[in-house]
Design a protein around this nucleic acid. Structure first.
Lengths: 132, 132
DNA sequence: CTGAATCCCTGCCGATACTG
DNA sequence: CAGTATCGGCAGGGATTCAG
């Protein structure tokens, strides 16, 4: 997926990174676009479910597998690696035996909560009127 | 992609569709999840760029092609069909010659603006500290 | 002008099996 | 326990071509 978005019709002289921002005027998908960065972080099946689990507190690999039984090892591993690289979560290896790793959201990851909330609200509005 | 998200750590007794909502507790991807519905609407390369153009006003097929030169007919057609089905935009055929079709956002589509803004802001925060 | 049909190629997802 | 390696299937995206 790729994006380069945002740009309110009416003028907000200098909102953070908006219509004034040159990046809001790109004519083709650009991985450096902030919108794309965020959507890239959220992309992938299971991704938001993993984030939801971590919003409730830190978790181990096994706890995540238990919370999402239909999620395979490989995909969970992929998601965790992806989210770690995206700066959404943080790995913490616990020394000793049995070897353990805890996963917790970074501050940046916690800032996804209102976004997920907004996505939820839009989708809920969409289905309640039942226009489709 | 699939999601079932949202769920603030701290208790909000009855926010719209949140931790209290049973759908916030699903253990596997569900297309009926509001979060998934929204992400599905935004999914696809070029999708948010098309929405951005329409946020600035209604457009014709050709105007969109001109605004996004690297976007092929087929993909633009796909995106418009997808967004129309998602309830984001509305087709309006103009009778006469040359045959024309105008595309404009639905009210639901306009409600994506703050979401795209939020996505932008998160992504901008992400890259300014330059942690990657 | 506005699309739909086709073809190919790539990347994601899932299952299975294997290491530290 | 916490992953990685590999393989196959399938859907998405782009170019080209054709039609209303």
């Amino acid at each position: 997926m790729t994006h380069q978005t945002v740009g309110y019709p009416r003028g907000h002289p200098s909102r953070p990174g908006l219509p004034d921002d040159p990046r809001a005027h790109v004519t083709e998908p650009d991985p450096a676009c902030p919108v794309e960065i965020t959507l890239a972080a959220l992309r992938g099946r299971w991704t938001t479910l993993v984030i939801r689990e971590l919003l409730r507190g830190d978790r181990s690999f096994t706890e995540l597998r238990h919370a999402l039984p239909a999620l395979s090892d490989k995909v969970l591993s992929d998601r965790l690696a992806h989210l770690a690289e995206a700066g959404v979560l943080h790995r913490h290896r616990v020394p000793g035996w049995p070897p353990g790793t805890r996963y917790s959201l970074t501050p940046q990851g916690h800032r996804l909560a209102p976004i997920l909330q907004a996505l939820w609200d839009w989708g809920a509005q969409h289905q309640s009127p039942g226009h489709e």
